[in-house]
Design a protein around this nucleic acid. Structure first.
Lengths: 366, 366
DNA sequence: CTGTTAGCGCCTTCAC
DNA sequence: GTGAAGGCGCTAACAG
C-alpha cells in the first residue's frame, strides 16, 4: 500500500494545480485559449470584462500561469542566465573574488527578474553536454584555462557567451581588466629597490600543481596568471632585472590555508625575497602573516602587494591593484542578457599603502 | 547597416547549430527520430552501427543534443533545483551561514550533475509568478517569514518544496535543528550566574527593524528568531528569571557592521548586560569586539555565546551552538531532488569554550 | 533493436 | 478585441 509522498493544502486553489492548462481556463471562462494567453502576456489587448472572467476562471481552477517549459519551447527564452564556475563551484562561495563577482551578477539578475543557474562541471568529457543541456539564455564563464571545451560548447548554442578573466575566444565577450598592464604597474610599486623579487602566483594550469617554479610561460594555460606574469616580466625588462632570477611560488588555490606551505617554502629559501607580489589580497595576507611569524618587518625587510583591494586591504594598509569584481559581474550579466552593447574594459588602479616603500605615482596612463 | 552581433567560429560543426533538430539528424542518418532520441537517452538500447551512423550524422550537421526546453516540456524534468534566498539574494554571498548552506547544496548538485537556479524575489506581489515561472524540479527556500506567499506558490506546482529554518508549512519538508531546545541549552551555558542577561537577535520580521525591543513574541514572524527566543524564555522559566526583564537587541541583518550600532546601544545601557547570547557567531564576534573596546573582560565581566560554530569560533574560544549548515544544505538538495526519503532532523550540540563561565554538561538529551 | 503515434502547453500567424 | 490552425523539438507508450 502506497501513501502519498506529499500532503497538500486542502484549498482547491492549489491542489493538483500543475495539470491545469490554459485550455481548461479557456473552457471555464468561455473564451479561446489565445485569449487566456493574451491575458498573461499582453493584458492591455484584452477587454477588461474578458480579463476578469479569465482571472476568475484561473483562480477557481487553481491555474497559476503559463508553464515555463512550454513557454520557452515556444519563444526560445528561459529567463535565466547560466554561470559556469568550473570545478570551482563547490568552493566558489568561499573565494572572496568569486563572491563579489557573483554578487554583481545576482544584482543584475534580481533587477531584471531573471534567475541565475549555476551549471556544475567536473572536468570530464560530459561537461559539454551539461552546458548545452542547461536551459538558459546566455552563459557567463568564470575565468578558465585556454582551451576549455565548455567555451565552444556554450558558443555552439547561438546564445551570448561572456568569459570573465579569460581566455579571449572569438565569438565571446571578454570581461577583464588589462592584467598585464596592471601587473607591470604593481610590480613597479612592490619591486622598487628590491634585490630579490618574488611572486606568489595563482595556479598555472588545470593541474593546479603547487611549487617553486621558474616561470615557464609556455605551460601556463590560465590567461589571468599568464598575463600577470607577463606584466612582471615587462617590468623586469624595463628596469634591467633578470627575470630568470625571479622566484615564482605557485599556489594550487587562492586560499590562505592552502597556500601556507608554499609561502613558507618561499620565505625559508636560503636567499629569501625582499619583495613579494601576490596575485590576490588573500595570498598577500598570508604572506604578511608568515613574515610576522618570522619577525620580519613590512615593508622594510620585505615589501608586499596584493590584488583586488578587497574589504580588509585598506585596514591592513595593503598596497594592491584595485578592481571591482562586483561591477565586472554586473557587466557580465548584462552582456549575457544581451542588454548592453556599450562594452568598455573594466578599470583598475594601483593603490599605494603601507606595505610598499615606493612613493611613485603609478596610475595607468589615461 | 547592421553588423553581426557575434562572430562565429567558421567550423560548420557549430554554425547555426541551434536550428538543427533530431528530425534532421534522423533524415541524414536514415533512421527514425526515435532512434536518434534513444541514442542520446538510452544508448545501450541502440545497435552500435546505428549509433555510429547517428553520431556521424549529428556531427556533420552540427547537432548538439536534445533541446532542453523541448525535453522538459515533454518529460517534465528540468535538471535544476530552485533556490530562493529572498531579498537576501544580493548579499547571501556575504553571510557565512548562507554560504555554508549553499556550498552544501552545490556539492549535491554537482554530484548529481544538476544545476542550481537562484531565483530572485523582491517582496512584491510578482514574486509568486517569478517562483512559478522558474524551470526547476524542486524548490529550496532559505529561512523566511511565517506566511511568505512564495511557499504556497512553490507548493502549487506539484514539485518538492524544502524549507530551511522555517516556517513549517504542511506539504513542505522542513530542514532545521530544534532551535528552541538549542536556545534553551545555550542559555544555560551563557546565562549561568548572570544577573542581567541579554540577547542579540536576528530580525523579528520582514520589516527588519533594529531596536532594543521587549520581546513581544506575537510580532515575530521569523520562525528561527521566534523559536530561539522561546528557548531563552524556557530557560528563564525553568530558572526563575523574569523574562520580561530580558533585554533583546534586535539587529536588522546578520552582519557585523550593520549590527554595530545596536550592540553599542546595548552595552552602553545604564545597566549593561553581564551575559549576552548572540544568534550567530558573527554577531558574537561583534559583541566581543565592542566589549574589548570598553576594556571589559570575557567571560568575567560579560559572558557571551554565538551560534553555528563557524570557522573562526574555535580560534576565538567562542562558546556556541554547533550545527552543520553544509550538511543541512546537502539534505535540502537531496529532498528537493526527491532523492532522500530518510529524513532525520539535523543535529546540534553546545560547544563550551572560553567565553562562558559554566562547566555544566549541556548536550541535548538523546 | 527500431519505428509509429500522439501529444507535452504554449504562442506566432493570420483571420475575422 | 477575439479565435482557429499549426507547430516549437522532443519522448512516453506502445507496437513489431
Amino acid at each position: 500500500m502506497e501513501s502519498p509522498r506529499y500532503i497538500y493544502v486542502v484549498d482547491m486553489t492549489f491542489a493538483g494545480a500543475s495539470r491545469v492548462t490554459m485550455a481548461d481556463v479557456a473552457r471555464v471562462a468561455g473564451v479561446s485559449v489565445m485569449t487566456v494567453s493574451y491575458c498573461y502576456n499582453q493584458p492591455g489587448r484584452v477587454a477588461t470584462r474578458t480579463r476578469n472572467a479569465v482571472a476568475q476562471a484561473a483562480q477557481s481552477l487553481g491555474y497559476l500561469g503559463p508553464d515555463p517549459a512550454a513557454r520557452s519551447l515556444r519563444n526560445g527564452r528561459t529567463g535565466s542566465v547560466g554561470v559556469v564556475l568550473g570545478e570551482h563551484l563547490v568552493y566558489a562561495f568561499d573565494d572572496p573574488q568569486a563572491r563579489q563577482f557573483l554578487t554583481g551578477v545576482a544584482a543584475v539578475c534580481r533587477h531584471r527578474g531573471v534567475g541565475m543557474t549555476l551549471i556544475p562541471t567536473t572536468t570530464d568529457e560530459r561537461d559539454g553536454a551539461r552546458v548545452r543541456a542547461a536551459a538558459v539564455d546566455g552563459f557567463i564563464i568564470w575565468t578558465t584555462v585556454d582551451s576549455d571545451p565548455i567555451i565552444p560548447a556554450a558558443l555552439s548554442l547561438d546564445k551570448p557567451v561572456v568569459v570573465h578573466g579569460g581566455p579571449d575566444v572569438q565569438g565571446t565577450h571578454l570581461v577583464a581588466i588589462d592584467d598585464r598592464a596592471a601587473a607591470r604597474a604593481i610590480s613597479a610599486a612592490v619591486f622598487d629597490g628590491a634585490k630579490r623579487p618574488a611572486v606568489v602566483s595563482f595556479p598555472l594550469n588545470a593541474a593546479r600543481e603547487s611549487g617553486l617554479t621558474p616561470p615557464d610561460l609556455a605551460e601556463i594555460t590560465f590567461p589571468v596568471t599568464r598575463n600577470r606574469l607577463l606584466g612582471v616580466h615587462d617590468y623586469c625588462a624595463a628596469t634591467g632585472i633578470d627575470s630568470t632570477k625571479l622566484v615564482v611560488a605557485v599556489t594550487s588555490r587562492n586560499e590562505r590555508a592552502t597556500s601556507r606551505d608554499i609561502i613558507d617554502t618561499l620565505l625559508d629559501l636560503p636567499d629569501p625575497p625582499d619583495a613579494v607580489m601576490a596575485m590576490s589580497d588573500e595570498l598577500a595576507f598570508e604572506v604578511a602573516a608568515a613574515l610576522k611569524k618570522r619577525d620580519l618587518s613590512i615593508p622594510y625587510d620585505v615589501s608586499i602587494s596584493g590584488w583586488d583591494d578587497s574589504p580588509g586591504a585598506e585596514a591592513a594598509g595593503l598596497t594592491t591593484v584595485r578592481q571591482s569584481l562586483f561591477e565586472q559581474g554586473q557587466q557580465c550579466a548584462r552582456l549575457a542578457l544581451s542588454d548592453d552593447n556599450m562594452w568598455q574594459q573594466p578599470a583598475w588602479q594601483v593603490v599605494l599603502r603601507q606595505t610598499t616603500r615606493t612613493k611613485l605615482d603609478l596610475q595607468p596612463a589615461p
